[in-house]
Amino acid sequence: MSKERLPLTLITGFLGSGKTTLLAKLLRDPLLGDAVVLVNELGEVPLDHHLLREVDEKTVILDSGCVCCTIRTDLVDELRDLEVRVHRGELPAFRRVVVETTGLADPVPVLATLLQDPMLSAHYMADGVVTCVDAVNAPLQAERQPEWTKQVVVADRIVLTKTDLAEADGAAAEALIRARNPVAEIITGVSGDVPAGRLIGLGVLAEERRAEQVTAWLDAVNHGHGHAHEHDHDHHAGVHAIALRFDEPLDWTMFALWLAMLLQSRGDDVLRVKGLLDTGADGPLVLHGVQHVIHPPTHLAAWPDEDRTSRIVLIVRGIGRAEVEASLRAFDGLAKGAVAA
């Protein structure tokens, strides 16, 4: 692709979690001076930016009814319109996009839209998902709101808000977050005061950062970062991390078949997938997925460290480690033993 894709930052978080307050502060930073900002509604918090657009969360649900396949047509239409107006000279060129979702939004369709829409996939790349979590209401929302869990699971950075309030329990909120997302950096952001550089320009899908992202996940899960171990998960949500390691190279064709099958049958309970796979090539294959949205896997030229075993992390709900490992070993064994390469 000749043209460099523009980074798109997604800011999400449950109702009242402080998304707009955070955005209002971020917009004062020069880092966002050449950004287009798409918000779902102009609320009580004033937003001051020359390229601020209000969009309705218009969605098209495809025939399968899969929420992840929901295409955010509002984003497609708005970004296409902006590109046209820039080409006409009616607007200055922009170098970055920030999208703020509604508090009840599922962020996955935005990521799916970026991959599935031909124009958007050619021009934009997800830079990172920033999720605001209200430290006061996190326990209640974690228990009762599936949207909260989804927003936390897909986050690359979490801004913990309202920690200055007397009734806030930051440690409890962090534990709830860690049970669902072992690796996202948690940043305390009272009144939205977070340096823009810690949230913008993350480049989570950039080729050069993919291995680093995966190894960070593997380290976090293997070292029991927070409450990510299976035995230590939050039983209300049943969400936990599974870390798998395979000493022998994996048969990629069978692995992909297995994963496609798993996503079809248990897709709602497979929240994230990351992995470095030894498929017999010189470098590993990097796997990155959010629910049904699997990014095209890429081969690295070399391994990022001395460890050359296949390592996979899945964030799942109600699925046990033993059943995943037994299944994957059976499928891989079938590929190696029964079907000639």
Binding site: L62, C66, C68, L263, Q264, G267, I294, P296
Partner: peptide, 8 residues
């Protein structure tokens, strides 16, 4: 790509 919506 979404695993559920693969179409020809």
């Amino acid at each position: 790509m979404c695993s559920l919506c693969g179409t020809l």
